[in-house]
Write a protein that binds this DNA or RNA. Structure first.
Lengths: 200, 200
DNA sequence: GTCTATAGATCGATAGAC
DNA sequence: GTCTATCGATCTATAGAC
């Protein structure tokens, strides 16, 4: 039996994820994780040699899940508005899902204890979409469909308009995630402004 | 002597701020705070009856400091580009200073334990600038200087372009704050795109 | 007000039986 | 592999002397 498919190990990972997301690294006790799994503490320590390793396993497990479900967004040069909306939609889903927000909070919270995980999580979530966006904007510019003198900056603004200040407010707990209508309105208004701003 | 000007109390607040910012709420021990102040634990508990109260005092102290130093940004209808840059600059300073980033991380980290503080901190930092921006954009629209059908959305995009994705990356520890050149370039490019997007 | 000393609970991690 | 039981350290908070 593969170590990753061991049911007790999976149960521990699931329980640890929940407890870490709810209470942070320091606030989560190995006792409460074992209780939630439910297994005894020695069983927990049999699968993960220490608390840090368990935390790392939870984060990396999440990243594997994200990477395995990342779809390659379909884009077409002929219809920039629709393609940009498709990319924007993927980005918004990645940012604002309830579980994403919880994980981002955890990573931000533990940035001092685990400085490397920010990069790991970012590369498994927002970065791939950002890179695809940059590539597509580069195409649009090269083909003369839009006038984008600085593709990097344009991509930043594109994502920025989707992300902050709303995403920041979600992280701070000032509002829950976005509902479907809010997402669509946000995306439509953003793409419209973007196309006007980078039009010839 | 006013309670707030008691030097030991101030020393405790300063030490507590540092320890909370470095280790989070659960990771910070009253012991280490007392040690850093430096005072004994009973003295600490004489000034703050429990850990939660001390945490709240640290956050509220920060908010008072912020509110007392908030400048009213000068704007002029005759020069939208310069005025928008001034507002943008104030917003960027508020978001990206090293201490701001640390506080935001702490608030986001403890959003489950202290759900009210997100709102408190937001109202003492980004919200006032956002509201002034909205008011100014409303003026520009009413005067026919810019065409802004949805002032709320436009303000969101304005702040969003300054904030996410860079601010998000700062929170996650992927990059430090912005240096002066980066700030200026960000603001100039943003205002330029914004004016083009909302031009008549 | 400030200290030394400590109570009582809980933490991460382990020994040893099965 | 999984359990009961427990170690030593550390935590929040307090008692009592000065």
């Amino acid at each position: 039996m593969n170590a990753n498919s061991n049911p007790k190990r999976q149960a521990i990972l699931e329980a640890a994820k929940r407890v870490f997301l709810d209470h942070g690294y320091s606030g989560a006790s190995m006792e409460s994780i074992a209780e939630a799994a439910p297994v005894s503490k020695p069983t927990l320590y049999h699968h993960f040699k220490c608390k840090q390793d368990l935390f790392a396993a939870v984060i990396l497990d999440r990243c594997e899940n994200l990477l395995s479900t990342l779809l390659n967004v379909q884009t077409a040069r002929e219809d920039p508005a629709a393609s940009l909306k498709t990319i924007a939609s993927a980005y918004v889903e990645m940012l604002y899902s309830k579980e994403s927000l919880e994980f981002y909070r955890l990573i931000i919270a533990e940035q001092r204890h685990f400085p490397d995980f920010g990069n790991v999580v970012y590369r498994a979530s927002a970065a791939p979409i950002f890179e695809q966006l940059s590539a597509y904007l580069g195409e649009l510019n090269a083909e003369g469909i839009l006038h984008i003198p600085d593709v990097e900056a344009a991509s930043q603004f594109f994502c920025g308009m989707l992300q902050g200040r709303k995403h920041f407010r979600c992280l701070m707990g000032l509002q829950p995630g976005l509902n479907q209508t809010e997402k669509e309105e946000l995306i439509n208004a953003m793409v419209s402004l973007f196309l006007k701003g980078y039009d010839y």
